Amino acid sequence: MVALILPTSPAPSSMTPRPISSRNEQRPASSGPVNRYMQPGTRWAWDIELPPMTYVRSLEWDDLLSEADTVVMKIHQPGLDIGSPGSPLIDGANQIGRTLNLKGLTPAYAFRKGQWISFPVLGQLFAYKVRTATVVESDGTVALPLLTLLRLPPANNAVVDVAEPKAEGFATVDTSSLQVSVDRFVRLRFTLEERE
């Protein structure tokens, strides 16, 4: 399987993330509390709409039609000034849970709540959201709280993309959006869903 890199332009006119939860939820048959138990496996999907483009330009996005390969796309965070995060790396192997230890960051770099990061595990990119605002220590390390549990433990020293996080997954195209309208423009809509 090959990961196909999608164009970075045009930027989406909308990119709506939604978690695909793996939590275990217990609801009593009668009255009583609902309980939720987190477990690894929650992944993300993005519903994406691109601005109108000419048919010729839309051909650059034909990788979305691949049936067997995943696609990689930049996660757009409009208006978010990423700043200078440094050269972040995973700090320690076999990490699990909702906290990710990183090193190589710019001291005092401030992660925002909801900011995206991504990193590879076994050759596949995984995307996560930061759970709470967190500031990097003076030695460039941080224990970064994540919104969801780590799905697989990353390798020590794996590169973490903070400046331009990316999503990898299978694409499902809204086939009605492939229509070339009377104004000769294509209005492409698709869903990108992480595969694990």
Results as ranks from 00 to 15, higher is better:
G41P: 04
D91Q: 14
R36T: 15
G83F: 07
P85H: 04
A45C: 04
S30L: 12
S87C: 09
G32D: 02
V130R: 01
G41N: 01
G41C: 03
Y128N: 00
G97S: 09
R36G: 10
W44L: 12
G41A: 02
W61L: 06
I82Q: 02
T132H: 11
L59P: 07
G79K: 06
L105V: 03
W61K: 05
Y128R: 00
W46S: 00
I82M: 06
Y37N: 09
S118Y: 01
T132M: 10
T132Q: 12
R112Q: 12
Q39L: 08
K129A: 07
V135R: 06
S31M: 09
E25Q: 10
G114T: 03
D81A: 11
D47F: 03
S84K: 13
D91V: 10
E137S: 15
S84G: 06
T106H: 09
L105C: 09
E67T: 14
V34Q: 08
N35L: 15
K103V: 13
S87A: 15
L125M: 11
V56E: 15
P88G: 02
F126I: 03
E49Y: 04
V136R: 04
P33N: 11
R57K: 13
Y37G: 02
L122I: 04
S66F: 05
Q39E: 09
L105K: 01
P28H: 08
I117L: 02
A93I: 06
F126Q: 10
Y37R: 11
E137A: 15
M53E: 05
H76E: 13
I117C: 00
M38H: 12
Q115W: 03
G79R: 05
I82T: 06
T99H: 07
F119H: 00
S66R: 07
L80F: 06
E49K: 13
D91C: 13
V56H: 14
Y37C: 02
G114I: 05
M38K: 13
R98E: 09
I75A: 08
L100F: 04
V56M: 13
G86P: 12
A45L: 07
P52G: 10
D63M: 15
L65Y: 02
G86D: 12
R112A: 13
I75E: 06
G79C: 08
R27F: 11
E25C: 03
I117R: 01
T106W: 10
Q124N: 06
E67M: 12
I96D: 12
Q26A: 13
S84F: 14
N94C: 05
S58N: 10
K129R: 15
V56I: 15
A127V: 03
S138M: 04
